[in-house]
Amino acid sequence: MNLTVNGKPSTVDGAESLNVTELLSALKVAQAEYVTVELNGEVLEREAFDATTVKDGDAVEFLY
């Protein structure tokens, strides 16, 4: 899956889609429990991480 992460191209191997929690784990995001996630310009509530799917071509920003 090809994404733009914090403005840079990134690839997650072996996945066509992941939820936000899985993406944080796959990318080994440090202190993931404290990060705010913006997906395609929309800031996500932490409670929505498990239910929100990240797909090929999406833009993700991790805000600390």
Rank of each mutant, 00 (worst) to 15 (best):
D50A: 08
T36E: 07
N6T: 02
L63C: 15
V20E: 00
E33R: 09
T53V: 13
N2A: 09
K28L: 07
T21M: 07
L23I: 04
S25K: 15
A48W: 10
A15E: 07
K8V: 12
E47Q: 10
E22C: 08
V35L: 12
E61N: 15
E33S: 09
S17P: 08
L27F: 06
T11Y: 15
A59Q: 13
V54Y: 00
L27C: 08
E42F: 10
E33C: 14
V35A: 05
A15D: 06
D13K: 14
A15S: 09
E47A: 12
K8D: 06
G57Y: 03
E22T: 07
A59H: 13
L27M: 07
S17D: 06
A32K: 10
N2R: 14
Q31A: 12
T36Q: 10
S10A: 15
A59R: 14
A26C: 12
Q31V: 08
A15M: 11
P9C: 12
V60N: 02
V35M: 09
E38L: 15
E61D: 14
K8A: 08
T11H: 15
L18R: 05
Q31I: 10
A26I: 14
T11R: 15
T21L: 09
F49L: 05
G41C: 06
E61K: 14
V35S: 03
N19V: 05
D58S: 04
A30G: 10
T36D: 06
T11V: 13
G14I: 08
A48H: 11
E16H: 13
L24V: 05
V5N: 01
V12K: 02
L18V: 07
R46M: 06
F49Q: 04
N40S: 00
A30V: 11
V12M: 06
P9S: 09
A26R: 14
L24N: 01
S10W: 15
V37E: 00
E22G: 08
T11L: 11
F49C: 04
L24T: 01
L27K: 00
Y64E: 11
A15W: 13
L24M: 09
V43F: 08
V12Q: 03
M1H: 04
L23P: 00
N2K: 13
T21R: 09
R46C: 08
K28R: 11
T4F: 08
V43G: 05
A30P: 14
L3K: 01
K55R: 11
E22W: 04
E61F: 11
L3M: 05
T36H: 08
V20S: 01
V20N: 00
S25H: 12
S17C: 11
Q31P: 08
N19M: 06
T21A: 08
T52Q: 06
T53N: 09
E16Q: 13
G14A: 09
E16T: 14
L44E: 00
M1K: 04
E42K: 14
L18N: 01
Y34P: 05
V37F: 05
L63R: 13
T53F: 15
T53P: 08
V20L: 07
V37M: 04
T36P: 02
T4W: 10
A51C: 13
G7H: 06
V20I: 13
T36F: 08
D56M: 06
M1V: 08
L39D: 00
T36L: 10
L23M: 05
T52I: 11
D58Y: 03
E33N: 10
V12I: 14
R46K: 07
V43M: 10
K8H: 10
R46N: 06
D13L: 14
V35K: 02
G7Q: 05
E16P: 10
F62C: 06
Y64S: 11
L39E: 00
L63T: 14
D58F: 04
K55Y: 10
V43R: 13
T36V: 12
R46W: 07
L24H: 01
V20K: 00
N19L: 07
L23C: 04
L27W: 02
V54Q: 00
V35Y: 07
